[in-house]
């Protein structure tokens, strides 16, 4: 097989040999080899991309056309108002941490989306929110999001850009600062929304020790057990990405959530089908060529 050859002339030389060793050979005429336009082996991935995009976009269009989609109650998000209300009553601040990664991380963006909703609630309640961040770009974006929230709540004068400030990029330097801040200012509500690593438990346990209501959301599976153990509510994986739709209730957001669910149903169906076919094939013993079935499913998932 010839592949990945860019603009060269290729000729194939064929040779045949009989049992006695006598042979004949010949060569084809030189032909230009052209570089493939598409990256090979990514057809299945492209197919999935198209299918998921179509599901999401069609669902959004349906939602815009007036179709109403329902979302199951997510306790952690229902508790946002309660947490901010409690902070207001106690006269203590609300602490919001949008993870420790930069703006190129989709979890940080999802965290800022939730910040804009939480910020609007704090502006409505006239509570104080503090957002220490570990990346300079997140500080800039966070200020934009929060200032728009205060504007939307009709309290632009209450917004102070120093509510969102930079601490350090260093993971444990940031953790030390935020832990110290919690102990000194004793926020009544702590939100951890974004990508976290080893600092998750240190932050959540410190928050627990000061008696704050804590709501966490992350797609970093390794940190979920720690948040579940130490926080009052935890948004697990996709719930974290669904938060934006849940809090806003906008048709576009609800539509995208529906598209996401349809995609998940399709993935689940392919998984179940694969398991059933392979199991039946194994039980039938020899009736089905398991190797080719396995290769088919692997190609289907782009493996």
């Amino acid at each position: 097989m010839v592949s990945m050859i860019d603009s060269v002339l290729v000729s194939l030389t064929l040779a045949a040999q009989d049992a006695a060793g006598a042979g004949a050979d010949g060569a084809t005429a030189p032909a230009a080899a052209a570089e493939s336009f598409f990256v090979s082996g990514r057809g299945a991935l492209f197919g999935w991309l198209v299918v998921i995009s179509v599901f999401v976009l069609v669902s959004i269009m349906k939602a815009r056309a007036g179709k109403v989609f329902k979302v199951r109650p997510i306790a952690g998000l229902s508790a946002v108002d309660e947490a901010v209300g409690r902070a207001t009553e106690m006269g203590r601040p609300v602490l919001f941490i949008p993870g420790i990664q930069d703006m190129d991380n989709v979890q940080t963006i999802a965290g800022l989306t939730i910040l804009s909703r939480v910020g609007k609630t704090t502006a409505d309640y006239d509570a104080h929110i503090e957002v220490p961040v570990s990346r300079s770009l997140v500080m800039t974006a966070g200020r934009e999001a929060l200032s728009a929230s205060y504007l939307a709540a009709g309290r632009p004068d209450s917004f102070n850009e120093d509510q969102v400030y930079y601490v350090t990029d260093e993971q444990f330097g940031y953790t030390a600062y935020v832990s110290g801040l919690m102990v000194r200012k004793k926020p009544a509500a702590c939100f951890y929304m974004g990508q976290f690593f080893a600092e998750s438990l240190i932050l959540a346990e410190t928050g627990n020790s000061i008696g704050a209501i804590q709501i966490a959301g992350t797609a970093e599976t390794s940190q979920l057990p720690f948040f579940v153990a130490a926080c009052d509510y935890t948004l697990i994986g996709e719930e974290f990405f669904a938060a934006s739709a849940y809090l806003s209730g906008e048709p576009d957001q609800m539509g995208s959530l529906r598209g996401q669910d349809l995609s998940k149903a399709l993935v689940g169906a392919v998984l179940v089908l694969g398991v059933v076919v392979m199991t039946v094939g194994a039980l039938a013993g020899g009736l089905v060529d398991l190797g080719s079935v396995s290769r088919f499913f692997q190609s289907l998932v782009g493996g």
Partner: peptide
């Protein structure tokens, strides 16, 4: 992953923290 199923696969071994191992 991009090299899987294409010629010689890349061999990788990793040492990781306990908390990230299940992932």
């Amino acid at each position: 992953s991009p090299t899987l199923g294409k010629g010689k696969p890349i061999q990788l071994v990793a040492g990781v923290t306990g908390v990230s191992a299940p992932q």
